[in-house]
Amino acid sequence: METTIQPQQLALQDIAQVAIRTYLGTRDFTLLHGVTGCHALRVILPYCTDRATALRYFWQGFIIAYLSTGPKTIRPVATEETESIKDISKRQAAIRESALNSDDDHVIKLSYSALEEFHYYGDNKYLQVFS
């Protein structure tokens, strides 16, 4: 826990922001697990007796996963914060359709996690997972 990859302060929301930006900036299959993993950790974290350690181990795993990609260059992600309610609804519907029309468990899980994280954090980047 005392390595240089461990920041002094670490919150799940910060990890989630890094995970979605890293996935969108690389579209790397390995890194989509950071998005789905953050969602899963958010669900189980209230049941962890040592939340700080759980976050740090997750962060460590995420960094190692990123390093295993090469590490790939992370391109900047355009933010689309001015989307209308209609556009947001269309994007959510398209993500649901992706899950419903797929037999790939990664597409289904990424769809579910992206929608859940969008609803929790309100960050439109989650609606870009398939664009």
Rank of each mutant, 00 (worst) to 15 (best):
A19C: 06
A93T: 01
T4S: 13
R75H: 06
G25Y: 10
L24M: 01
F62N: 02
G70E: 07
V43M: 15
Q13A: 14
Q6M: 13
L115D: 01
E83S: 02
A94F: 00
R27W: 00
K90G: 11
L115A: 02
P71T: 07
D50Q: 12
S89I: 01
N124T: 13
L100T: 08
E81A: 02
Y112E: 06
A93W: 00
F29K: 14
L41R: 15
F118Y: 15
A65W: 03
R51P: 07
H119F: 06
Y47D: 12
I5G: 08
S131N: 11
V77L: 05
H33S: 03
A40Y: 12
H119I: 02
V43G: 07
K90T: 13
I63F: 11
I64G: 01
G70I: 09
E81T: 07
I85E: 13
T53Y: 15
I88K: 02
G37R: 05
S68W: 04
V107K: 00
H33A: 01
A11V: 14
H106S: 09
D50A: 12
E2Y: 15
A114R: 03
I85L: 08
L100Y: 08
I44E: 14
I88W: 00
F130G: 11
A78D: 05
E116I: 00
R42M: 15
D87F: 01
P46Y: 09
H33D: 06
S131M: 08
T73Y: 14
S98D: 00
S84G: 06
L110E: 01
V107Q: 01
P76E: 12
D104L: 09
R56A: 14
K72M: 14
R91Y: 03
W59A: 04
R75G: 01
Y66N: 14
Y57Q: 12
I5R: 07
V129S: 08
L41K: 12
I95V: 07
